[in-house]
Design a protein around this nucleic acid. Structure first.
Lengths: 132, 132
DNA sequence: TTGACATGGTCTCAGATAGAGACCATCAAC
DNA sequence: GTTGATGGTCTCTATCTGAGACCATGTCAA
């Protein structure tokens, strides 16, 4: 079956089940993982453990506030492990848990699609702008 | 190569290139497509064309405002086609473009991961809540 | 005839959320 | 002594989101 048909069938079955949005696993996961910073940080950590400030340097336009917040969410969701060394000043290292590593597959698919189809999207935007 | 290593390598190469976030295709695409409503609407349309009100019924907790806005963005990005029949009252049908259909693959990967790993995430949250 | 409902939106207002940047304590290097 | 790095927190403001009213027209039922 083609992916779009499979996806459509899945969606239909959710509808048929009368899926309350609070119980739909996909909804509840994407609400957490499906924002720009989560995906970016997971990609950054896919290469290996990093410290807080290294992450801040790797993703320069994230604010410390969002970095802290996003890492905390990823930690409570079990995707990221937070390791504090009680040195002075304390140093904190973040790494992917096995669950986080397992997310790399789907995420890589998304990234590859983005790289392959970015040109098409830019062209579409130009067409729409010209038409308007 | 494992997916996490491949993803890590990609991220490293972006860093090495000194990727301005405004030029990174992945960033620019995820900024548009990586929100909850876009993904959900693309999944809803994967099963075939739908009208505005059918989409509103399929995703009950989206406001009309966000539905309009998200569909417009998906349209300018070339993922969704908008077809207006000049009847009275006008009826508007939305469908995936070929580009939109091609996005179903990566999206399906994400959805399948979510379904498979939702339990693990819930367990992780419970562990963290218990520890706190 | 009158009212309810569907059509595909737009508009406004309040509340949630994100980002910018100051601030903290401590230590090392210059 | 001053600067920078450590990993954050806090506050203020700007932005974004959701709720719900509104529109014009037509169909259907009571």
């Amino acid at each position: 079956m083609r992916a779009d048909q499979a996806l459509g069938a899945k969606f239909e079955s959710w509808l048929a089940m009368g899926f309350d949005e609070t119980r739909c696993p996909v909804r509840r996961l994407l609400d957490h993982v499906g924002d720009r910073w989560s995906m970016l940080l997971l990609a950054a950590l896919a290469g290996g453990p990093r410290r807080f400030s290294a992450l801040a340097r790797a993703v320069p336009d994230i604010s410390k506030r969002m970095l802290t917040q996003t890492l905390r969410t990823l930690e409570t969701d079990g995707l990221v492990h937070r390791d504090v060394q009680p040195t002075v000043p304390p140093s904190v290292t973040y790494s992917l848990t096995p669950l986080g590593v397992s997310f790399a597959g789907p995420l890589l698919g998304l990234v590859e699609w983005a790289e392959a189809n970015f040109g098409a999207v830019v062209a579409a935007r130009a067409r729409m702008a010209a038409a308007a």
